[in-house]
Amino acid sequence: MIVFVRFNSSHGFPVEVDSDTSIFQLKEVVAKRQGVPADQLRVIFAGKELRNDWTVQNCDLDQQSIVHIVQRPWRKGQEMNATGGDDPRNAAGGCEREPQSLTRVDLSSSVLPGDSVGLAVILHTDSRKDSPPAGSPAGRSIYNSFYVYCKGPCQRVQPGKLRVQCSTCRQATLTLTQGPSCWDDVLIPNRMSGECQSPHCPGTSAEFFFKCGAHPTSDKETSVALHLIATNSRNITCITCTDVRSPVLVFQCNSRHVICLDCFHLYCVTRLNDRQFVHDPQLGYSLPCVAGCPNSLIKELHHFRILGEEQYNRYQQYGAEECVLQMGGVLCPRPGCGAGLLPEPDQRKVTCEGGNGLGCGFAFCRECKEAYHEGECSAVFEASGTTTQAYRVDERAAEQARWEAASKETIKKTTKPCPRCHVPVEKNGGCMHMKCPQPQCRLEWCWNCGCEWNRVCMGDHWFDV
C-alpha cells in the first residue's frame, strides 16, 4: 500500500509500505531520502505521535493516508518512550493509558441525555464484534464512529474520518494533550489543546475536521460531520418502519427517538411537499423529531443533505422563500418566477423588478396576487391545505425507538455506581478489583462488596467470576 509523507509540512511524497511495516522502518526510509538522522524524526498522525514499535496496521493507516513527519531533536526523557523501550505506560498493571487514536474515538455516547454525564468515556458498548469485510486488514473493525456528507465523488452519507490540525499553522502536526470525549470537544473551536510539532510553531489549540472515509482524499478535501447519525450498535428499532437498520439518525429530543435514513428521507420529502418545515429565527429551515417532541429541531442543517441534490435544492429554495415571508415580504405569483420581494408595508401595487435578471417585471396586487387592478379585489380565496398535519407515529413504536432507553438498560445490566462519587462504572470481565475512572475520584473498590478495596476482598473473592 501507499502512504503519503509530508516532511516538515512540505509537499508530500509517496512511500510504499506493508501492513506489518513498523513506524521506525518508515522513519528509516524517510531519513534516507531526506539525509537526516532517523532518531530525530517524529511521525504524527490523527493528533498522535506514533511509536517506533507500532506497525502501519496498528495505527489504522489506510491506503493513501497522509502522515506528517517532522525533524525535531529529542528532548530529555522522550527518546526512550518513542523507541518502544522502557515506557512506564506499558508496564503490566499500570494505570496510565495511551491517548486514544482519533481513528478509534467514539462519540456516540454523547447523544445520551444530559443526566448521563461521564458515560462518553466510561461506558463502552460490546456491539462492535462484526466481522471485518472481505479485503480489510485482519482485526480491523467495521464499526463506524462518525458519518459525514461527502460532496465529492460519493454525493451521499458516508463513514467519516476525524482529523485534527494546529489552529495556528493549519498543519496536521499537532499532538493532542488528551483525546475528545464528546461532540462539544470536536465542534467547539479551541476547546481542546495540544502541542504543535512543526518547527518554530508555538500553536497549542486544536482544530478538528472530518474527511470522507470511503475514498482517498487530499489535504484540502473536508466534509461536514453529521453528528446525529450513528451506527445502530444498540439495535434500536426505527420509529417509523420498526426495522432494525444501521446507520440511524438520533433526534435530540428527551427520548432520543431513532429513525433509519430511508424513513428520514421520506419524512423530509413529505414535509417538504406540504411546505411544513419549521422556520426558526436562529436555526433556519428545519424539522423536529418525527414524533413531534418539543425542543427537538435539527440544529445542523447539513443533515438535510440526505435528501439528495434535487430535493436539497428545493429545500434551500423553500427556506429562502419562507425567510422572505417571515420578513413581511411577498413572492411573485407569476408561474416560473417566484422571486422574493420586500415592498413597503402599505404598498398595494407590487412590481417584480426586472433588474439584474432576477425579476420578471410582472405587476400584481398584494392582496389577491392577481395582475394589478384598481378598486376592490374580486375574490380572495383562503389558501387550502395549509394546516399542519401531524406525522403519524405509532405510540408503541415510539416507545421502542428510544436510544436513551437502550442506554439505561445497558447501564443497569453492566454497571454499578462507584461507592464514593456514584458514577456508573462498567465491568466487562476481569477481577473484582475496580478503579473509578473519574479523575477527581480514582477510588479503588470491590465490585462484589461495593466497598473500598481491602485485604478481605483480596483474599476471599479477588478473582471470582
Rank of each mutant, 00 (worst) to 15 (best):
P37M: 07
C360P: 03
Y285F: 09
V148C: 05
P417C: 11
H215I: 00
V258W: 02
N8K: 02
A339R: 14
L41S: 01
L50C: 04
C377K: 02
R396Y: 12
L287R: 02
Q40K: 05
H265Q: 07
E409S: 09
V258R: 01
E382V: 11
R156V: 06
G203S: 04
W403C: 03
Q165H: 09
P281N: 09
G292L: 06
S110L: 07
G84Q: 10
C293R: 01
F13G: 00
N448S: 08
S10V: 04
A206Q: 00
V30C: 06
C360V: 02
R128K: 14
L107T: 15
G84N: 10
R42H: 09
V56R: 00
Q63P: 15
C431W: 03
E367I: 15
A406C: 09
G359W: 06
Q63V: 06
D115N: 10
E374R: 06
V258D: 02
Q316D: 11
M80I: 13
A214N: 08
H433Y: 05
C446W: 00
W183Y: 06
H279K: 13
L331E: 03
N52D: 14
P73A: 08
P424Y: 07
V244R: 07
S127E: 14
N428D: 15
V290I: 10
V350K: 03
L287S: 01
P73L: 07
G118R: 08
G338W: 05
L342D: 05
P333S: 04
C238H: 01
E374N: 06
S378A: 08
R334E: 07
D185I: 01
D346F: 12
D464P: 01
N254L: 10
I66N: 03
V456H: 15
D460W: 02
S181W: 03
Q282R: 09
L50T: 00
K427R: 14
V105Q: 14
N58I: 05
R234K: 14
C431E: 04
I306R: 00
T387K: 14
E16H: 12
R256D: 02
I306Q: 03
P153Q: 10
V186R: 00
C451M: 15
E49K: 02
E353Q: 07
L119E: 15
T173E: 12
E28A: 07
A138G: 11
H215F: 01
G308M: 04
C337G: 03
T177L: 07
R402I: 10
E353F: 06
